[in-house]
Design a protein around this nucleic acid. Structure first.
Lengths: 129, 129
DNA sequence: CCCAAACATTACGTTAACGTTATGTTTATA
DNA sequence: TATAAACATAACGTTAACGTAATGTTTGGG
């Protein structure tokens, strides 16, 4: 609950490994943990929240590239109306993409069911009893 | 229509590349084409049928590993019952996975809509005209 | 016999997202 | 102060399904 944690606490609470955190830092997905001089890195609650949001988006099969395109909009706190409207545009676009993916999966699901039914009917006819 | 074709005819009729044929040979998905001494390979109609069956299963999004688990039954078991039962198991498993993904996407869709609505309400209150 | 296609054989490349050593340093605690 | 646990860094490894040179050999037609 502190604002300063090391990588061990961060990764445990986020459910990722240190390797993942460092990889995300290297590709600019999360900000690098601050360090005092040359030693270890310290991370904030906001970075933890970012990691959790990244995990959410990963579950939706977004690539890290795609996540990088949208992640900031979840954490910028737009002071003005224009900023919020920009966020809205991105979120709506995101919604459209998710709807598209849902349609694609449902289409594939239908094809799968069709195939399964055909297999079942074939087996029924061949082996009545 | 002969029983002896070289790789060019095989790949053209199967709709794959020579690289694909050799890769499939290397992983034991199709039998290696016979050769006279040291020269070129000759393939049979059965290998062509195998390639076409592989393509069918790939359209069902089976991995080559999964295909290798079932492909032999199409050509060894004359009734095809065993093969179809095995394929059925794999297809049902895929169906369950797809259903799970659809649920995840719908959950995320709901969260997104919630987010969007909150933004819209904020903008309405702040800027009612 | 000649030559262009077709074929064969290596072997490195590609993409994404980290895992896994290997080795050395820092921190916290007794 | 000693030392174990935690941390840092570098670099090679992994998965899937082939693509893409690069180089050499075989085949069929004229």
């Amino acid at each position: 609950m502190n604002g300063r944690m090391r990588i061990g606490e961060l990764t445990e609470r986020a459910g990722v490994t240190p390797r993942t955190v460092r990889y995300y830092e290297s590709i600019g997905l999360i900000p690098p943990g601050e360090r005092e001089g040359q030693g270890q890195h310290y991370y904030t609650e906001e970075t933890l929240a970012r990691l959790r949001k990244i995990n959410q988006l990963k579950k939706l099969r977004l690539s890290l590239d795609e996540i990088r395109d949208v992640i900031d909009f979840y954490f910028i706190d737009p002071s003005g109306v224009q900023a919020k409207q920009k966020v809205l545009v991105v979120l709506r676009q995101h919604l459209a993409e998710v709807d598209q993916k849902i349609r694609e999966y449902q289409q594939f699901r239908a094809e799968l069911e069709d195939h399964i039914e055909r297999f079942e009917r074939w087996l029924e006819e061949k082996k009545p009893r």
